[in-house]
Amino acid sequence: MSERSTPSSSPPANLAFVASERPEAMEARASLARRYGDADPADAQAIVALGGDGFMLETIHRFLGMGVPIYGMNRGSVGFLMNEYVEEGLPERIACAEQAQIHPLRMTAVDASGQRHEALAFNEVSLLRQTRQTAKLRITVDGRVRLSEMQCDGALVATPAGSTAYNLSAHGPIIPLDARVLALTPISAFRPRRWRGALLNHKAQVRFEVLEGDKRPVSAVADNFEVRDALDVVIAEDREIVMTMLFDATRSLEERVTAEQFQA
């Protein structure tokens, strides 16, 4: 989930720069550090992430809990979560940026050995078949079985901020940031063929039970954290955790989500 708030009033004096391993990102970091200095992230008023969307997710997880907003600039292949790369006037751009406050999904997964795993996802939690055979999943929402058995390549639960990522590729809906819903989307469903997913209240708890897990193993992935041979996966939004992302006023995250719905 995401919430918007007003931008700050004065340009930040201390900026911290982090970059992906792509050469153009590393070069941008060096150039910006020479120009604006490079504060320790713990002392920074904003963290500037240089890379693509994958690196932005890594940065969000890395600095989660520090309370420092993150402003991304695109130095990667995909930049939906990033701002345009411009070196001039960066502190002023950050001061005028719109704030999007993102709440993650919390995944609790139990694997075939009985081990319990927890992880957070700001985009989506996805279940994916591990072998050539389709997965068999039972889907429960708020304690009520909604699909007793689905044969598929997998399924996912996406946040509004993540609805334009894997969820969109799987033909799931694009969700406005303030809609307070989650997308439950099948991935290549074989049975039932006509089920295209559901929109759920953001407070809903979704449970996936893996059927015939020994024969049809399934992995559970929360952003970039994977659990192999998952048997039971519970997903719910964690409202106690928030991360602030910054976007140029002319290209806010809300505007990008809206514009994406009109792409041919």
Rank of each mutant, 00 (worst) to 15 (best):
S8C: 03
L15N: 01
A19Q: 10
R22Q: 12
P23L: 09
A28M: 03
S31Q: 09
L32K: 04
P41R: 02
A42W: 03
A44P: 11
I47F: 02
I47P: 03
T59G: 04
G65H: 10
G67R: 13
Y71M: 04
Y71R: 10
R75N: 06
G76C: 06
S77M: 07
F80C: 11
V86T: 12
E92N: 04
A95Y: 04
A97Y: 05
Q99D: 04
Q101Y: 05
I102N: 08
H103Y: 12
H103M: 05
P104T: 02
V110Y: 10
D111R: 09
H117Q: 05
L120C: 09
N123S: 14
L127V: 15
R129I: 09
Q130W: 03
Q130R: 14
T131V: 03
Q133D: 15
T134N: 01
K136N: 15
I139N: 09
V145I: 13
R146D: 02
L147M: 04
L147E: 12
E149H: 14
Q151F: 07
Q151A: 12
C152I: 00
G154Y: 08
A158Q: 13
A161E: 09
A161N: 01
S163T: 11
T164Q: 10
A170G: 14
H171I: 03
G172P: 06
I174M: 06
L177M: 11
R180S: 14
A183G: 15
L184T: 06
P186V: 11
F190Y: 15
P192M: 12
R196C: 08
G197S: 10
G197F: 01
E209Y: 03
V210E: 04
L211N: 01
D214I: 00
K215P: 05
V218S: 08
F225V: 15
E226L: 14
V233S: 08
I235Q: 09
E237H: 09
R239V: 12
M243H: 11
E254D: 14
E260K: 14
